[in-house]
Structures are given as structure tokens and as C-alpha cells.
Design a protein around this nucleic acid. Structure first.
Lengths: 282, 282
DNA sequence: CAGATGCGTTTCGCTAGGCAACACAAAAAC
DNA sequence: GTTTTTGTGTTGCCTAGCGAAACGCATCTG
């Protein structure tokens, strides 16, 4: 851990055209000797990241154990976030919860993707026609994060929406995304995924590769029950000016057959991707 | 933004149950003497906030002038945000743009509000029935930020969506929100608004008060062309377990009359609010 | 082609913030 | 009621990050 002046490996990564990430969980060892890296900011964002559908309100101590930071540190960061309006205190015991202010942070992305005007209508249309939940997602670290989601009116079991995440390796969305990527980035992510999934990658890796092969063969891939039991999904890559993303359509197993997914939903998804691809981005 | 001596009131404010804000633009003089306040985090978030629909990609120098921070500081913060995956470099000239990763920050709020399951369907239904864009919003500083937005399929002119913002004083949404607030907070925000709008508040203030009176009288208020020319909007407060929010329905002037807004859309909006109110929150 | 301008990054002194340990308040257990 | 547990907010100490000015490195300009 000697001060190494000039360029570090992280520097090269962060400068590359594709901003490649650190490890999935935690910001621990990465950027250890990057003099330009601002830890306070990283830690503060890690606090915001700790909240999720399962944990809508958290105390300082809980955040401390979850993130691995010292309590006083967490206390100051939550205090700061509260003063800025991103968090608020929800009870006497000092539980913090995110406020709608955090939504403004995501807005520039959604507007840049022109999701609101261009993509929403055709996605909603397809959702109603096929009975599938139709979603558009991009990569964040080793997950896919939804930018837009069109649920069919009657389907309430699949709880996904803007900002929610699914794992890259076990979802159709993630495999379609990988299929849309260039050689270099795909290999890089494969390495990361292998690292993350450890020994089970031996069985998982070939299935991911198979998904990619499916995309090469017919434009989309299918995952049946692998990400969540009884959820069938088709997905295809979506290459735009803003980078590679992916489209997916899925439904509970009892509302759709693999044949329908294969013969109707999949091709329709590919058509939708072709239609949206030039519209997205400036 | 120099450290300003003297005890500030912000500390007390930020500790109160209702986390009331600092001034709208910039984080300048606020929290000057607060020892628990982490500036690095505040500055980093200010960087993210600087992006918007108008500025989807910004250079270090531009960010520096926009936020008032020194260039090296901005450089480090953007470097950090890029390393964390929230920003990426979009061209050779070093312009930064937000990535979909920022969407994950907003997700806990959306899931806590149960927007995806509970609110989306009835809002969409009303949008299609009335031809209005229907939206749900909460306060951020002195703006209202959309948590959910249901556009009617054919309407493409109103560009609003999750995370977008409208001013509090000149929008029906903001006035309805103020009407739903308690005495103390409303007075506080009135003070802030007066401060912000300066001399024109003399004319604006009474119109805001009139909006609140409208809500008291019939449950909703109407703004015709005041926020944007040729946009007519009705809005009503939405009191939930997560705090006060507001619902709105609006359309371009040439697609809807004030009578329709008054007699059909407004009452329907109030009914929608009554229906959603118990559903939102845990 | 030399000089000039604009832009992003680096150097370095100084200050703010992270860490460890302690002190304290409130529930929960007994 | 006392103790235990859990959890938050304060102190010294030292590292990490902020800011002013200097530095490389492009592109303009005559």
C-alpha cells in the first residue's frame, strides 16, 4: 500500500469509455490508493444504496453493520443527507428513510433515454396485448436496473418498476444484455461474474453462454424459472446511442406457456427493440 | 461559499420531524457551522443534481461554474462518481453524463409508496378516461417532484415523468400540496417562497392563497396557463402515512375546457385521492 | 510555427472528516 | 426497580479531502 504516484489500475478503468465498476458488494478494497477518489461521497451514496424494498427505514446502527462503516461516520452521513432533504427521520428511535428528493437524481437519465415519450407507449401496448410485464433495463455493476416498466393492468404479482434490480447471470435480461455487448466488455463481465458466483459458476456459466447463443440464433433468449420460480421471461438486447441495454417480457408460469413466449412474445420483443433502438438517445 | 460565523438555525430544522430544506438553489450558506455536516457528500450530490433534461452531459469546467465549486474539487468528485458507476465519460472532451445506476437510488422511495402496484393502474385508468396526464408528486425543497406519472396514450406534448419537477408556487400541484399541509409547515414554506420569488411574490402570494381556498371549498384547485402557457391543470392534496403529497391531472388548453376540468376531472381527482390515500404507505 | 487561449489535472498547505473509545438515553429483560 | 441490551451522540488523534496556483496539453490564430 505504498503511495504510487501517477496512474493506477483504477484510473485506467474509470477513464475508459465504458465505465467499469468495482466489485458488486461494498466499495472496500477498490480504489485503495487512488488519490482522486473521494471516500466521503462514496460512503454517502452507499448509505442511500442500503435502502431497498425490504428496508425502507433503517437506524444508524443497522446501517453501520450493513455497510461496514463506523457508527459516527454513518451518523454524520445520515445527518448530512437529512439536512439536504434526501433522508428524513421517521420515528423517535431515529430511523431514517429516503424521501422523494432522491427521485430527482434519476431524472436526467430517464429524460435522456426519452423513456417517457418514445418508449412508454409501445411498451404499454405490448404489455396489454401479450399479458406480459414489459421492461427496459441497463446495467449497474452486476445487476440489471429497470429504466422503464410497463405492467399489464391485471398483473400484480410481478413487483418490478423503475429502479428495481435483477441479477445479471440468472435473468434473461442480463443474458440478453451480455449478448448485445462487445467482446472485450463481455469477457470482463464474465470474469467478474465468475468471481462473484464462485463455485456455482461452473454450472451457471454454460447456461449464460447458452442464453447468448439463443440471442445469436433468433434474437432473443428465454429463462424459465431460473431467476424466480414460476416466472418465465424472454429478453433481447437493445443497442442505443447511450449504450447497450435490454428489453424483457415476462409473466408467471401459470399465465403463459413457453410456446407462446417462444413463438409470439419473443419475436414481438425483437420487433419492439428494432423500433425503439433508433428512438432512444439523442 | 465561505464558512459563515454564527449559529445557524439549520441544525434545529434538520433535526425536526419534518426535514425542512435549505434554500432552493445551491447549498451555499446553509449548515455553515454544523460540525456533523459532511461537505464532500453534499457537493457530490450537488454534482448529480446539476444534470437535467437540458444538460444531459457536462464538462468539469461547466459543472464548476454551475455549482460554484473549484475545478479540482469537481474533477475529483466526477472521478469518484464515475468510478462508482453513477457517471460515465461520453466523449473525448471529457463530458460526463449520468448512468442508469442513479435510478437504483430512487427505488426504495417508489417501492415504499407502492406506486408500482397500487397507484399505477387507477392513475392510468383515469388518464385514459379523461385524456389528461395524471401525476403524483411530493415536495423537494421548493419544487414538486413526480413520483409517478400516467400519460394518456396519445398525448406527447406534456413531457413529465418520474423525477421531473415543477415549481411549487405557480403549479396547481404545489398549491394543492400546500393546502394539505399543517399550519406550521405551510407558514414556513410561505416564508421561503416569499424569499425566493422576491418582489413578484406580492402578486403571486394571493394567487397561491386562492388555490388553497379552492381546495378548502371543493377539494381541488385549478391553474390555467400560469405554470406553462396553454396548460390547464387540476390538483388535490394526498395525505398518506408517508407524508403529504399531491395528485394532479392536466392537459394542453386545446384539448380540454375549464368546464370539463372543473366538473369532471376535478371531482374525479378527489375521488382518486380518497381511493389511493389508504393504499399508499405501509 | 510561436504565442495565446481554454481546459482538465497535479502540487501542497491547511482544514475538515474518519476512526476508536467513551458517555449517555431508552427499551427490554429479569 | 435494577440490570442488561441496544443504540445514539460526543471527545482526541490522525488521515483524507478542499482550494489557490502552477502545470501539461490540446486547439486557435495571425
Amino acid at each position: 500500500m505504498k503511495p504510487k504516484p501517477g496512474r493506477t489500475a483504477d484510473d485506467a478503468i474509470s477513464r475508459s469509455a465504458v465505465p467499469l465498476l468495482d466489485d458488486e458488494d461494498g466499495i472496500g478494497a477498490a480504489h485503495a490508493e487512488d488519490r482522486r477518489f473521494v471516500w466521503a461521497l462514496a460512503r454517502g451514496l452507499e448509505i442511500l444504496r442500503a435502502f431497498g424494498p425490504e428496508h425502507t427505514a433503517l437506524s444508524v446502527g443497522r446501517l453501520s453493520t450493513m455497510t461496514g462503516m463506523a457508527k459516527p461516520t454513518v451518523s454524520r452521513l445520515t445527518h448530512t443527507l437529512a439536512a439536504l432533504g434526501y433522508l428524513r427521520v421517521v420515528d423517535k428511535r431515529g430511523h431514517y428513510a429516503p424521501t422523494p428528493a432522491v427521485l430527482t437524481l434519476g431524472y436526467p437519465v430517464l429524460s435522456a433515454l426519452k423513456v417517457q415519450d418514445a418508449a412508454a407507449a409501445p411498451m404499454q401496448e405490448m404489455a396489454e396485448a401479450t399479458g406480459c410485464l414489459v421492461g427496459m433495463a441497463a446495467r449497474d455493476r452486476l445487476s440489471m436496473v429497470f429504466a422503464q416498466c410497463a405492467p399489464p393492468p391485471w398483473l400484480a404479482t410481478l413487483r418490478l418498476g423503475t429502479g428495481s434490480r435483477v441479477p445479471m447471470a440468472t435473468s434473461a435480461l442480463g443474458r440478453a444484455f451480455l449478448a448485445g455487448l462487445g467482446e472485450v466488455e463481455r469477457d470482463f463481465l464474465f470474469g467478474r461474474l465468475a468471481l462473484r458466483h464462485g463455485v456455482e459458476w461452473e454450472a451457471l456459466g454454460p447456461r449464460v453462454a447458452d442464453g447468448i447463443a439463443q440471442v445469436s440464433a433468433r434474437g432473443f433468449c428465454i429463462v424459465d424459472g431460473e431467476w424466480q420460480r414460476d416466472v418465465r421471461t424472454a429478453a433481447c438486447p437493445l443497442v442505443t446511442a447511450h449504450g447497450v441495454m435490454a428489453l424483457m417480457a415476462g409473466a408467471p408460469g401459470y399465465t403463459i406457456t413457453n410456446e407462446t413466449l417462444e413463438n409470439e412474445v419473443g419475436p414481438r420483443l425483437v420487433a419492439l427493440a428494432a423500433k425503439l433502438s433508433p428512438l432512444i438517445g439523442s
